[in-house]
Each structure stands twice: as structure tokens, then as C-alpha cells.
Simulated assay, not measured.
Amino acid sequence: MSSAASFYSGFVAIIGAPNAGKSTLMNRLIGEKIAITSKKPQTTRNRILGIVHRPFSQLAFVDTPGVHRTSKILNRRIVDAALAATTDADLVLWLMDVSRSAEEENSLILEHLQSCSKPVILALNKIDLIARPELLTWMELWHGRFPFREIVPISAVSGEQVEVLVEVLEKYLPEGPPLFPEDSLTDKSVGFIVSELIREKVLRRTGEEIPYSIAVTIESFKGEGEGEKAEIHAAIHVDRESQKGILIGKGGSRLKEIGTDARRDIEALMGKKVFLKLFVRVQKNWTRDAKAMERFGY
């Protein structure tokens, strides 16, 4: 940055393989949970914006779905959206998980970035899970594979070196006024974040039984503004009848657990008591139906 009087702002696209820790980093950066996380690949389906306000800069981070090779229509749309984010951004942050090899996914990203004219910063994530010699090997390997502006080792979970990463990114922002109001953290509505929190709890509570065949829609939302309590009715859509029973559980036990988990996070998000009612609906083969995917926001 050339002078303390200048202000810098821009969009930073976070890209990486599934489970690289992009959503965890986003939540760490803005200090609020707006991006859902789980151990399942492709947990993130939409581009989510998180805004970081600094004394002389504003960074608008775009959390993107994990990049991977796929033949499924829904997943192809998701990956296309992730890669397209690099075109719209002012700079690209490639987040790489150093605790595991993701060579196929990383090669796909590398191939895409060959034509990228934006500054690309590499963040080597999960350094808390490997030894220093292994980290140095990663740094040497990737230094030779692409002309990154800088390579920064971090841990999104512990926060180690995350401040250093932000300072590095600041250096490459274009000069310009703030892009968003001072009090804004995301461009997503509360309703969108609520639906994502419910989907996260489904993913966490259903193991491998209901992998990616769910979508969540908010049917009604009362008390979003001021007031002591909010009332939310939401539908969880599955694409096969057999999944409905699995999701509801014996005597409704699993759906109740999902609702309890989700309500806890929604109350933390909204800062008030929440009454949450969940329904399960079958939308046959929606993950292969273009119109249904569009209706669910994909």
C-alpha cells in the first residue's frame, strides 16, 4: 500500500479442492458463521460472500464450492460456478490442504489458472497437521509449478498465520472506496444462511445415507427483524421416497435432532429465540432436473 491515506478494496475468490477448508477460513476471517462446514465433500454449493473490514481496506471474500471432476449435472453446475468466480475477482486465493494429496483436483485448478491474469496467492492450509519438513516440501513443489505472487502457510482452524495472509492479500488490492457498508458481513440474506445451517445439520446427522440429494427451502419466516422471537418453517427436499424415512428417523427422532442442532445455530446467528418447524418433502430426481435445480437456487 502506497500511503496511509489511501483506501483499497476488492473481491478475493477463494478456490480449492473439496474439504480444503475454504468455508472454515471464511468464517474465521469474518468472525461469524455464515458458511456451513462438514467433513463431506461439496458441502458448499453456492458462492458466498464474506466481507472483512480493515482500517484502510475492505476485502470481499467469495467462498466457492470445491473444484473436482464430475459427470453429474448438479455438481457440474457447482464446479462451473466456482471456477467462474476467478474471472470476476480482483485476486485469487488458492487454498490447499497439505494434510492430504488432491492431485486430480489441484491439476484441474492449475489448468484453469493458466489463463488467469489476476494475482494468485497460495495458502497452504492445515499446517497444524503436518511436520515442518513436509511443509517445506509442499512450498518448494508448488513454488515451481505456478508463478504465485506469494505462498503463505496457515491453519484456518487455529487461526495461525491468518492475519499474515490478510496482510499479504491487502498488498494486491486495487485502490478504491469500500464496496459495502461498514456493518455488512455478507451479501446473503438471513433466510439463505438459515437454510444453509439446516442443510449442514442434515449432512452431519445422516452420515453417508443422504449424501447430496437434499435441498432446503424456507417456507415462512416471521420475526426476522426486531422482536423477542422468530418463527421459521422450512422444508427439506429429498429426491427419493426411501430417503424420507431415513431423514425423519424412528418416531421422528432424527428430524428432531436436526431441528435442535439447527435451532441452536440460528439463535446464535439472530441473537434471539427461534421456533423452528421442519418438514420433509420428496421431489423425485430433482438433482437431474434443470428446472428443479433452478428453483432450489442452483
Rank of each mutant, 00 (worst) to 15 (best):
K250S: 14
E170T: 08
K244C: 12
G251I: 02
E175A: 03
I248M: 12
A262H: 03
V166Q: 14
S101M: 14
G225Y: 10
K118G: 02
Q114C: 15
P181S: 09
T206P: 03
I232P: 00
D289T: 06
P119H: 03
L197V: 01
I109N: 01
G31Y: 10
A82D: 04
E104T: 07
F180K: 05
T64V: 07
E163M: 11
R47E: 04
E219Y: 11
L124R: 00
S23D: 09
F7M: 15
T206D: 09
E267R: 08
S213C: 14
E219P: 14
M96I: 00
D97M: 10
L173D: 01
T86E: 02
V274K: 01
A262M: 06
D265K: 04
M139W: 10
V168S: 01
F148H: 14
P119T: 09
Q42P: 01
R132D: 15
T24E: 14
S99G: 13
L269W: 05
V238E: 08
A20R: 05
S184V: 11
I109K: 04
S184G: 11
G225L: 14
T287Q: 08
F221H: 08
M139L: 14
D90K: 00
T86R: 00
R263G: 11
E111H: 15
E241G: 11
D239W: 05
R145A: 08
S158R: 14
E103M: 10
A17F: 11
G191T: 06
F11I: 13
S220R: 13
E196W: 00
E111V: 10
I130E: 04
V194C: 02
G21F: 10
E257K: 13
G176R: 07
I130L: 03
I121E: 04
S57F: 15
E294L: 09
V194Y: 00
L93D: 07
I15Y: 03
L247H: 06
H53F: 13
F192Q: 02
D97P: 07
